[in-house]
């Protein structure tokens, strides 16, 4: 089983992510250089905290380019929560800050007639031919979400509108929810992700 290399974004709480991989018997490493990100077989971009702060931290460490490059090269990479949002062009959370821009669309705030943050378990519906993603209940903790992800296979959930709950494309997986906190449903996604590229 390959190890997972986690990209530090400075704000993320790593303990839950590490514990989730430990339960799967996967060794976790912290990326300490751009080379580590470029060379790792499997990379995770976690994220707790704000879009702007996370993006600034990635740029400061020179991690934004190798991350984007490996994703463009279809090397196994999974993004979570704010990490997921960083793949988009921009976010209402931090106006004027560019994301990684793998996807040209924008991340917006929830409508005002639903609770925000969205805290809790929402029902995710994946497409039947998805490779890693699946339908089931996942744990969310977010105030912002994307509505479209052109070119990706999108799994959706409903909160205000049907938003992008997760998406995949080749060896890339990106979840708005927290697979590491989504019980067996989330563990199965992490496990299938680790099998990509094998």
């Amino acid at each position: 089983m390959p190890a997972i290399t986690i990209v530090p974004t400075g704000t993320a709480n790593m303990a839950s992510v590490k514990a989730a991989f430990a339960r799967l018997g996967v060794e976790t490493r912290l990326a300490d250089s751009a080379e580590a990100i470029a060379q790792a077989s499997h990379v995770m971009l976690p994220g707790v905290g704000a879009f702007g702060a996370s993006m600034a931290r990635l740029r400061e460490q020179g991690f934004d380019r190798p991350l984007k490059a490996r994703m463009l090269a279809n090397r196994p990479t999974i993004a979570i929560c704010v990490g997921h949002q960083l793949l988009f062009a921009s976010s209402d959370e931090s106006p004027g800050v560019d994301g990684l821009g793998l996807i040209a669309t924008h991340v917006g705030a929830f409508e005002t007639d639903v609770r925000a943050p969205q805290f809790g378990w929402n029902e995710v519906t994946a497409l039947e031919d998805a490779q890693v993603l699946d339908s089931g209940f996942a744990y969310f903790a977010n105030s912002f979400r994307a509505l479209e992800a052109p070119g990706w296979q999108v799994a959706r959930a409903l909160h205000g509108q049907r938003f992008v709950a997760a998406m995949e494309r080749g060896n890339l997986v990106s979840c708005q929810f927290h697979p590491e906190l989504s019980a067996d449903y989330g563990a199965a996604i992490l496990s299938r992700f680790m099998e990509l590229g094998q």
């Binding site: 639903v114 609770r115 969205q118 809790g120 378990w121 929402n122 409903l158 909160h159 509108q161």
Partner: peptide, 10 residues
Amino acid sequence: MSRTGLTHRI
């Protein structure tokens, strides 16, 4: 709260 698939938590 309307229009959500969010479940009630225990």
